[in-house]
């Protein structure tokens, strides 16, 4: 007796095989998506540690400036808003990808990347301004922990931007519409995660004074 016999090993790669994955796994869920959520769960402990370090040290300013003296709340509010809206454009990219609308996908991905870049640009500006006002990385515990926390977040956003741009490039070359839809979804999850981390940072770091 021969069983129906073709087994194709799928889904070892973030990008290409994942879409048909859902049909062969024990849970019916895609490997990459499970992996991504596990990764994000793990990231919670990473950012948790950095945020806790900042919370513990934010009042310890040595001879340097205090948070109240240097934070520019209106400016940061705007850049926070930009990042928040990039989540909307990201979700629209995912929706377009599921509809196999590659043009729409690429458009929204590009807009998301631009919004992200605006945010990172704002952060660079902010860092420079703080530095000029006397808050260096080595000035005080506040300085060290502030730059470490927001810097880690900034690196995450930058990685996200690179992924978005790469995805647009790959998408443009692909001949099958919607073939990258799961990758779009995965990068979307990552992007939203980076956004929710900023939601927390914005409140705990900027809005709540020491």
């Amino acid at each position: 007796m021969l069983r129906p016999a073709t087994v194709m090993r799928l889904g070892h790669h973030m990008a290409d095989t994942a879409t048909h994955e859902a049909h062969v796994t024990s849970t019916g869920l895609s490997n990459v998506k499970l992996g991504m959520w596990l990764f994000l769960g793990s990231e919670c402990l990473l950012f948790g540690g950095l945020i806790s370090t900042y919370m513990l040290y934010r009042g310890r300013v040595s001879n340097g400036p205090t948070p109240e003296q240097i934070y520019d709340i209106p400016f940061t509010s705007v850049s926070s808003f930009v990042l928040l809206m990039s989540s909307l454009t990201m979700v629209l990219a995912v929706a377009a990808a599921h509809k196999k609308d590659d043009r729409g996908t690429n458009l929204w991905l590009t807009v998301t990347a631009l919004l992200g870049a605006t945010f990172v640009g704002g952060q660079v500006y902010e860092f420079t301004a703080f530095y000029n006002e006397g808050l260096g990385f080595t000035t005080s515990l506040f300085g060290s922990s502030f730059y470490t926390l927001t810097g880690f977040h900034g690196v995450h956003v930058t990685v996200g931007i690179i992924m978005l741009i790469a995805l647009v490039a790959i998408n443009k070359r692909s001949r099958v519409p919607g073939s990258k839809s799961e990758t779009v979804e995965m990068i979307g999850l990552y992007w939203h995660f980076v956004d929710i981390v900023w939601i927390i940072i914005f409140t705990l770091v900027y809005l709540i004074p020491v």
């Binding site: 194709m8 048909h20 979700v91 599921h98």
Partner: peptide
């Protein structure tokens, strides 16, 4: 992973679960 799987190289399967998380563009906005 099961044995009774499709031999599937065409990435055309991605769609049938695409619609299921029901939110419209309007909703997102």
């Amino acid at each position: 992973m099961t044995t009774d799987t499709t031999h599937n190289t065409a990435p055309s399967h991605g769609t049938d679960h695409a619609v299921e998380h029901g939110m419209s563009t309007r909703g997102y906005i």
